[in-house]
């Protein structure tokens, strides 16, 4: 046994004990991750009689579905762009802004909590803050600014975007922190020695190094918002027509009156989150090559 090289031994005799150990994991993955998704994928390419068709995807263009996709894309893009921007600014301030030592661990711990504080309770928190009787709304009204008279409502596009930022910004902080830590202090010192201004250092060194990571993180935020439903549903009920809420209604009661069209709505969402994640992975591998 000791004389045989490990590689050839594995080819002659599969490691049955090890395979037995990983088998339950693969059975689980096949039954509860892959098969359900594949089922929808197949159904999306079938008509009512089970024959192959692309018509379901063409019918995604009908106004009610198209508008819900558009609204979802807009909310995800707005919350991802703003979340990435504010998250990056916050992380840079805490890590490189010359703030006291305790700021960084505090921000990291809080970000861990806040990025996981989502769903229904988050909707409650923003109702209590920016709802008609919320603390901020009431305070601003006593100061003479009536948000709701100016057309603001927490149940609208911007209300939902501000709410999503509560988990998007912390997520950005957590995802982009390793990239900021990768900015070596020597680069800054070298730039200063060569007479570069702070602006030149950021424009010509720091940002070119950071942007692939920051963009990748923004894509992750986009996919994160696109699949989210609980916060929006708890905040607005079924009145706010984003794609996940449309799909929720379809699963509940076949509101599209066509099961196969419902599969296509699901597969369309999957395609968007899938492509976004692929782009993220591509950017990440590019960043890793640069290091």
């Amino acid at each position: 046994m000791t004389s045989a090289p490990a590689a050839s031994r594995r080819i002659r005799l599969p490691d049955w004990a090890a395979w037995l150990g990983v088998a339950p994991f693969f059975v689980f993955a096949a039954m509860f991750l892959i098969a359900p998704t594949a089922w929808l994928l197949v159904g999306a390419f079938q008509d009512g009689d089970g024959a192959f068709t692309l018509a379901n995807f063409v019918r995604l263009g009908q106004p009610s579905i198209r508008l819900s996709y558009a609204l979802s894309l807009e909310i995800s893009a707005a919350s991802a762009a703003l979340g990435a921007l504010f998250g990056l600014a916050l992380a840079l301030a805490a890590l490189r802004g010359g703030l006291p030592e305790w700021v960084r661990p505090t921000l990291m711990t809080f970000s861990g909590v806040a990025s996981n504080f989502a769903g229904v309770p988050l909707a409650f928190a923003f109702m209590a803050t920016l709802g008609r009787l919320g603390l901020v709304t009431v305070l601003l009204r006593t100061l003479g600014v009536d948000l709701y008279a100016h057309g603001f409502n927490v149940l609208t596009f911007w209300g939902l975007t501000i709410t999503y930022l509560y988990f998007q910004i912390p997520l950005m902080v957590l995802v982009v922190t390793p990239a900021i830590d990768g900015l070596r202090r020597e680069w800054k010192e070298a730039a200063e020695t060569l007479g570069a201004s702070a602006f030149q250092y950021w424009r010509m060194i720091a940002l070119p190094v950071l942007w692939p990571s920051a963009l990748g993180a923004a894509l992750l935020l986009f996919a994160n918002a696109f699949g989210a439903i609980a916060t929006a549903y708890a905040l607005t009920g079924s009145s706010f027509n984003i794609a996940p809420i449309l799909l929720y209604a379809q699963i509940r009661g076949d509101v599209l009156h066509d099961p196969n069209l419902g599969y296509a709505v699901a597969v369309g969402m999957l395609a968007i989150t899938g492509l976004t994640n692929l782009a993220y992975l591509a950017l990440r591998s590019r960043t890793e090559r640069l290091r």
């Binding site: 994991f25 509860f32 089922w39 996919a223 699949g227 996940p244 994640n277």
Partner: peptide, 27 residues
């Protein structure tokens, strides 16, 4: 198997929960 397993563990981050549960209800 490391690559395949890593791919599987990332699937729940890619497939929206609402899509996955739709598959469950059908399957």
């Amino acid at each position: 198997l490391a690559g395949v397993v890593e791919f599987i563990t990332l699937l729940p981050l890619v497939i929206p929960a609402i899509v996955l549960v739709f598959g469950y209800i059908r399957l």
